[in-house]
């Protein structure tokens, strides 16, 4: 039982990080209707920017983190301006954009492999201090992961309540209406990509600090984010959090009952179950018939 509690605590910490990843992915998917495969590559890239700033630049962790967030946000904005926007303007189908995004992700991954190699990169550090709460022991890094990710997620949710950010939520539903109400679509699209990429940098830096990362990790994190959003329900942002925590806790249960090597299956199994039995997601919107 103690092991289960420990694993659940680990799951909740992971859930906080997955939640932040899911928010970034969900923002892009809901508002731009783009299945942003390159999001995973962006996540890894920001982790390696952090790694470089800390190990080569000698920057303190917090400054390196801010540098990584800024770089990632800039890369996201550039991706929109130079990659997704031209596709949107030419009315390219979303399936073609998905394939193009996959191509971009592969290209970025290969460039990073050339630059950083295929080995796991980790920031050298000593043993982390830990805190014991009854049967559960959490390292200081885990506590920092949970606290930082939860704070950033709360800040993003507060941001989304601002009237100017409601446009971001409306965009996915009706881009033409956004324009006919006097709002610049390209500007808001860039804002979304920049914000999402900046958000992804936060868990990326924290994972890099804790266990390190290799350049090929992007796809697995992307899948977790995508499953969390689809399982929680694309239409409602709180669902993305629920989906993320569900994936993380289920992974812990699988480790407890079976083995850590089956954790990868959790995301797929959850996605299949949701798609089969509750297509709109756990907290999806119930639509009137005429809403289609």
């Amino acid at each position: 039982m103690n092991l289960l509690l420990q694993l659940l605590a680990n799951g909740i910490v992971n859930g906080a990080m997955f939640a932040l990843l899911a928010i970034g992915f969900g923002l892009v998917y809901r508002s731009l209707r783009v299945f942003h495969v390159a999001y995973g590559a962006c996540f890894v890239l920001s982790a390696f920017v952090y790694y470089l700033l800390v190990t080569c630049g000698g920057w303190p962790w917090w400054l390196a983190g801010l540098g990584s967030i800024a770089t990632s946000a800039a890369i996201g904005t550039l991706m929109e301006a130079g990659f997704y926007w031209p596709f949107y303007r030419r009315r390219i189908s979303s399936e073609a954009v998905l394939v193009a995004s996959l191509g971009l992700a592969i290209m970025l991954e290969n460039v990073m492999a050339l630059l950083f190699g295929n080995e796991v990169a980790a920031i050298p550090r000593g043993l982390s201090q830990s805190v014991t709460l009854g049967p559960v022991r959490l390292t200081m890094i885990q506590i920092a992961q949970f606290a930082i990710c939860t704070s950033v997620a709360s800040a993003v949710f507060l941001l989304l309540r601002l009237p100017s950010f409601k446009i971001v939520l409306g965009m996915g539903e009706n881009t033409e209406l956004v324009q006919t109400l006097g709002h610049s679509l390209p500007r808001y699209r860039m804002l979304v990509l920049g914000l999402a990429s900046g958000i992804a940098a936060v868990p990326a830096c924290l994972v890099m600090t804790d266990v390190g990362m290799d350049v090929h990790a992007g796809m697995s994190y992307l899948l977790i984010a995508a499953v969390a959003v689809l399982a929680g329900g694309v239409a409602r942002a709180p669902g993305w959090l629920l989906g993320a925590y569900l994936v993380a806790v289920l992974q812990s249960v699988v480790i407890w009952k079976f083995s850590a090597k089956w954790t990868g299956l959790v995301a797929f199994a959850l996605l299949l179950a949701i798609l089969l039995f509750r297509r709109e997601g756990l907290v999806g919107l119930h639509k009137r018939k005429e809403e289609g």
Binding site: L162, K166, I167, G170, E173, E176, L177, L181, H183, A235
Partner: peptide, 25 residues
């Protein structure tokens, strides 16, 4: 310009629709 159809954000509340329209005020 009032569009013929699809002229509100159906997934958002009436208040949110009006906030968007009023230019974020």
């Amino acid at each position: 310009y009032l569009k013929q159809t699809e002229n509100v954000f159906r997934q958002l509340s009436v208040r949110d629709n009006l906030s968007i329209a009023s230019g974020a005020k």
